[in-house]
């Protein structure tokens, strides 16, 4: 089956991103496809490479980045939500006159249309949030 995931919460405060990651990993292991993971609301905070969790804790950003690299999963951060919360790629940083970017490997910034398209293209869209 072809799944699309929407993640509405940031890492660590909420379990949503962990649950979505575990779901994605399990679905891929069973031969399903993850068409796209769309990060919205505070979920965009999963996509910063500047998080440094304690060494004995999981690193959610790295888990997502590794999943993207190993399985070619499309990780999309909503641009409107990202702008509000300071998640920038190199292009956005330049366009907004900021002194650096923080987007993590495997993530890309794009528009809400990517969420709607995921809803259309996937067999199931699953929302992870509160």
């Amino acid at each position: 089956m072809r799944f699309a995931l929407q993640i509405n919460e940031g890492p660590y405060t909420h379990q949503a991103s962990d649950t979505a990651y575990q779901f994605a990993k399990a679905a891929l292991a069973r031969g399903h496809e993850i068409f796209r993971v769309f990060f919205y609301h505070d979920g965009v905070n999963n996509g910063t490479r500047y998080t440094v969790p304690p060494q004995d804790d999981r690193n959610l950003q790295k888990l997502w980045s590794d999943l993207a690299e190993q399985h070619n999963v499309d990780l999309v951060v909503c641009i409107a939500a990202a702008q509000r919360r300071g998640i920038l790629d190199a292009n956005e940083a330049k366009r907004q006159g900021k002194d650096g970017d923080n987007i993590a490997p495997g993530f890309r910034i794009s528009g809400l249309g990517q969420l709607i398209e995921a809803g259309i293209q996937a067999d199931r869209l699953i929302v992870f949030g509160d």
Partner: peptide
């Protein structure tokens, strides 16, 4: 999202 989605003719 609703306003963007409305442009997709769904």
């Amino acid at each position: 999202v609703v306003l963007i989605g409305a442009a997709f003719e769904q």
